[in-house]
Design a protein around this nucleic acid. Structure first.
Length: 651
DNA sequence: ATGCCAGTTGGGTAT
DNA sequence: GATACCCAACTGGCA
């Protein structure tokens, strides 16, 4: 039998340790093994990726490439500058490949891509080995099946379904040697991907040219592309990627057994910096530079040891392993819901709230277009100020500036700014916030980001919307003196701790002494040599109350993203015109209108969608005029609601 | 059916 | 500083 000539396709597994797919490739005892990376136009142009996450990816790629070379001086990570779907069929022939091996991927886009690749490999007579999914603790599809085909919506569901699937796989061994690649000459045409639209265009200071020098790159050596080639500004994050880096860091975490075994996430400070209160494993997990299972078992072994010693241990959901369980929960939800998981429209498990700045939807596909509806110019302004860290709430602004600058913020800091943007402040769609995080986070993981935004906005996974973070009190609780604010909002660094979270309340003498002017909406940075910090963009207590009533209202209406009334825009009849959120007009999309404007063609598609969804049973909201009277201070805004539900009293 | 309780991480006040 | 309790009040699972 001829020896195997293997392409090992790295994707979300930029590591050599605990890689069951790589082990499967090596088990073939191949004659040659090409470790490759297909430079993907989806990532380059279509997904939101800021320069900091690019840098992190590039770090991880370079690191794994060095590790490969350490095992075989002939080898490295060969980056081929063409998307897999068009590239691989040519590569199969050019390099006389017998086997293609890669790890199973999880998100909706990757699944489609892989299906095409598998088809073309079969056509070319190349055997495909899809290694087990190892970016999560369990295979997400198996957990979903064990959960009755439904998304896991709580940790207990995840744990129960996970237990049915079986024990979390122990890590596999790290290879100690690798076969070299064969001939790496290539004489094939490069198909350059469509570069428009380029979602990341705003990050580029010059043209994107990673594809312009051919498949093997500018030196013809299959090098890892650089930010310069991407046309992007240098990264500003201090966080660097790479498998070897995180494995070393992990050892230093685990060496402190007391810390490891008693870790409780809610007790770590969102305001800590240099060093942070947690260990930033998330971006490494995202790129696969750290195996979740390896991490899990290393921690669990220590916890078990401590248990036997009758020492205190923390347990899920707050413990270290609990954090990994949450990650799996979101991956399973994503596996069950597919594309609809990432949006409100059409999502059976996402509550419908008439947020401001809702996503535009292409009703033909049922998918969000990437654009949004500006239903209110003032809200658009608030969104921009939130994004820019100029809300006038120092705690919020410090977090957002840290996010933009460094690409990482603490989990609780994410809570604070997410609550503020959505249900506890601006009443702006969680989808707007998720997009900003997607661009800026070095650890952005679609499943976790989407899941957490739904959680914080109380549209899925979590419902206690009356538990609302204060942009003042929450910061104070963790950082009474405001060191975190001083670090990231330096114009306030001279203020005393009394006013650091509410600078607009400081007397003029204090402001003079601190060397800052509190004025305006954030558009002015300096005034006569003195830095300007904006006034709060609204009265938080007033806004909190508006949000709270809006949420209460929306919960009582009780729509989800796949409700016929959401799909066809008639949800508006259920919301009062003077309630929070865009409710004007009788026609319209999920929150917007343009998606349904001038759409004769769209009408048909919409009808089809609605027809399909109408057949499914749904909960009819209970009429509860008594509760409405008791709980609502804005009585006038309830008239429409109570009227609407008067007709629908449960029999 | 109805009630009870838990749910990773709120805020405010009192002890 | 840690803890208890209340505030006002969500869903979903279970008895």
């Amino acid at each position: 039998m001829p020896q195997a000539r293997v392409l090992y396709w790295f994707r979300t597994d930029l590591r050599l340790h605990d890689s069951p797919a790589l082990k499967a490739a090596l088990d073939l005892k191949p004659e040659v093994l090409y470790p490759i990376w297909c430079w993907d136009s989806h990532y380059v142009y279509r997904a939101r990726v800021g320069n900091n996450r690019w840098q992190f990816l590039i770090d991880c790629m370079n690191d794994v490439s060095r590790s490969i070379t350490n095992l075989n001086a002939e080898s490295k990570l060969f980056v081929l500058r063409e998307p897999a779907v068009t590239l691989l069929p040519k590569l199969f022939r050019a390099w006389n490949i017998t086997h293609l091996v890669f790890e199973k991927d999880t998100d909706a886009y990757a699944k489609e891509r892989d299906k095409q690749v598998i088809e073309s490999a079969e056509k070319a007579g190349v055997k495909v080995i899809v290694g087990p999914q190892s970016r999560t603790l369990w295979d997400s599809d198996e957990v979903m099946k064990a959960n009755g085909g439904k998304p896991t919506m709580s940790i207990s569901q995840l744990q129960a379904a996970g237990a049915k699937v079986g024990a979390i796989a122990r890590p596999v061994e790290t290879p100690t040697n690798l076969p070299g690649p064969g001939d790496v000459e290539l004489d094939i045409d490069q198909e350059r991907p469509e570069s428009k639209p380029d979602i990341n265009g705003k990050y580029r200071e010059s043209d994107e040219k990673t594809y312009s020098s051919g498949i093997a790159g500018p030196q013809g050596d299959y090098s890892v592309p650089t930010l310069v080639e991407l046309g992007m500004k240098p990264a500003t994050t201090p966080h660097r990627g790479g498998e070897s880096l995180i494995l070393a860091r992990l050892e230093s975490i685990l060496a402190d057994e007391d810390y490891t075994a008693t870790f409780e996430k809610p007790k770590t400070s969102p305001a800590a910096f240099e060093p942070q209160s947690t260990f930033l494993t998330s971006p490494f997990l995202h790129f696969g530079a750290l195996s979740a299972r390896y991490f899990y078992h290393r921690v669990e072994d220590i916890v078990e040891k401590r248990r036997k010693e009758k020492k205190a241990v923390s347990t899920p959901p707050t413990s270290l392993t609990g954090q990994l369980l949450f990650r799996d929960m979101y991956f399973v939800a994503q596996a069950a819901l597919g594309y609809s998981f990432g949006q409100t429209y059409g999502n059976s498990h996402c509550r419908f709230i008439p947020w401001h700045l809702p996503s535009k939807v292409d009703v033909k596909t049922g998918l969000v277009t990437g654009e949004y509806e500006v239903d209110d110019e003032g809200k658009e302004k608030e969104f921009q100020r939130w994004r820019d860290g100029k809300t006038g709430f120092p705690w919020i602004d410090a977090i957002m500036r840290q996010l933009k600058q460094e690409g990482w913020i603490h989990h609780l800091a994410r809570h604070a700014v997410a609550c503020f943007l959505t249900r506890g402040g601006c009443y702006i769609s969680w989808e707007r916030g998720a997009e900003v995080f997607e661009e800026w986070l070095v650890d952005h993981e679609a499943a976790c980001n989407i899941g957490n935004w739904q959680w914080l906005s109380c549209t899925a996974f979590y419902a206690m919307f009356y538990r609302c973070y204060s942009p003042v009190a929450f910061g104070k609780k963790w950082d009474d003196t405001g060191e975190f604010v001083r670090k990231y909002v330096p114009e306030l660094k001279g203020l005393s701790k009394k006013y650091i979270y509410e600078p607009h309340k400081a007397p003029i003498q204090d402001l003079k002494k601190a060397g800052v002017v509190i004025r305006g909406d954030g558009s002015e940075e300096m005034s006569e040599g003195v830095p300007v910090y904006p006034k709060p963009m609204f009265d938080f207590n007033v806004q909190r109350e508006i949000c709270m009533q809006g949420m209460k209202n929306a919960y009582r209406v009780g729509l989800h993203g796949n409700d016929p009334k959401v799909l066809d825009g008639s949800w508006k009849e259920l919301f009062a015109d003077d309630g929070a959120g865009p409710t004007e007009g009788k026609e319209g999309g999920p929150g917007g209108m343009a998606s349904f404007e001038d759409a004769d063609e769209a009408d048909g598609a919409r009808e089809e969608l609605v027809k399909a969804k109408r057949t499914s049973k749904r909960n009819v909201p209970k009429a509860s005029p008594e509760a409405a009277r008791k709980g609502h201070k804005r009585e006038h805004s309830q008239g429409t609601i109570d009227g609407a539900f008067g007709k629908k009293v449960k029999s």
